[in-house]
């Protein structure tokens, strides 16, 4: 019986992340529009976009290979699995021990790897420019993220996200310099990895500065819809990750009562909303930077991550 309940909660989590992801994107867009004094599209516009794309034909470039057609599903699957393993409203999910933080970083790496390959597949200049820049950003962002993971893991004594959240809620952790540095680093990485301003502009097309959008330029129809869902999922994953590591309050314990799950769900949605609004504020208040300034931005994250880890190596109480 308990097993069935655990499976059920894991299933709820998987469904929840997919269902909420476009809403988060819609929220960010809406808040950004309001900050620009525009009316903005409705909150559920991303759902409508995805449905519309799903129903359309796929227009495939003549020399696209099987990799190009398979990549959207692989990217979606890798991102979805990664998102399903992050504790959102409940800890100790049935499969949370399958992959730890390092494996989640690497799963996102797999998704990026296949998307970058798909960008190279048709053999256009825009696809290549997007892929090469995406991989350049990743070479800086991934080490920064791993170092943040290291410092969090050193504080918690574990790389399992459920254990990390549990340790972080306990009173003995308190405020720590290294965790503060880690939080800043992870936020910078999240901005870069999700192709947000100032690293990349998710709203732009036909610009030489774009990265992510250039990579997926050849996609259309249901393939594009899968990629859109995957990138929305990725945004949700990063917000959930930051929430469950640094703000783990309200997450239901394992085998808790139904009401605590419901409470966890409400708190989680609240956290997502706060994250989305903060992101929209941040994006509105900064300008996009030149692509070769991005390494400096990410280098700062790398150094902060390294500093946080170093502090923990030198003294476990910092």
């Amino acid at each position: 019986m308990e097993l069935i309940a655990n499976f059920f909660i894991q299933g709820v989590q998987m469904a929840l992340v997919v269902a909420l992801a476009p809403l988060l994107v819609g929220l960010v867009r809406k808040v950004k529009a309001r900050l620009n004094r525009r009316q903005g599209a409705s909150l559920i516009q991303p759902y409508r976009d995805i449905l519309r794309l799903m129903r359309k034909d796929v227009v495939l470039a003549e020399n696209a290979s099987w990799l190009f057609r398979a990549a959207p599903y692989m990217v979606f699957a890798a991102t979805w699995v990664a998102a399903a393993l992050v504790p959102t409203f409940a800890m100790g999910l049935q499969f949370s021990w399958t992959a730890d933080m390092i494996a989640i970083v690497a799963l996102l790496g797999s998704a990026r790897f296949f998307l970058a390959l798909a960008g190279m597949d048709v053999g256009t200049s825009f696809g290549g420019i997007g892929s090469s820049r995406e991989m350049m950003i990743a070479t800086m962002a991934e080490p920064a993220m791993l170092l943040t993971v290291f410092s969090v893991a050193l504080v918690a004594g574990s790389t399992q996200l459920s254990t990390v959240s549990a340790v972080m809620t306990s009173p003995e952790v308190g405020l720590r310099v290294s965790l503060g540095l880690g939080l800043v680093a992870l936020v910078i990485v999240a901005i870069a990895e999700n192709a947000r301003i100032p690293v990349d502009n998710p709203a732009t097309h036909l610009e030489l500065t774009m990265v992510h959008e250039a990579m997926v330029l050849e996609y259309s129809g249901r393939h594009l819809a899968m990629i859109e869902i995957a990138s929305a999922l990725k945004l949700l994953l990063y917000v959930s990750l930051i929430a469950c590591i640094f703000f783990p309050w309200g997450i239901a314990e394992r085998a808790d009562s139904l009401s605590s799950y419901a409470f966890g769900m409400i708190v989680y949605v609240g956290k997502l909303a706060v994250g989305g609004v903060l992101l929209a504020f941040f994006e509105t208040s900064v300008a996009k930077m030149r692509v070769f300034r991005v390494p400096d931005f990410l280098g700062a994250a790398l150094m902060l991550g390294l500093l946080g880890t170093l502090l923990l190596f030198v003294s476990r109480s910092l």
Binding site: M54, R55, K56, D57, V58, V59, L60, A61, E62, N63, V122, G123, T124, S125, F126, G127, L217, E218, G221, R222, A225
Partner: peptide, 12 residues
């Protein structure tokens, strides 16, 4: 959703 595919020159 849909399963149709049309081939055309690359968009670029």
């Amino acid at each position: 959703a849909s399963r149709r595919v049309r081939r055309s020159p690359a968009w670029d």
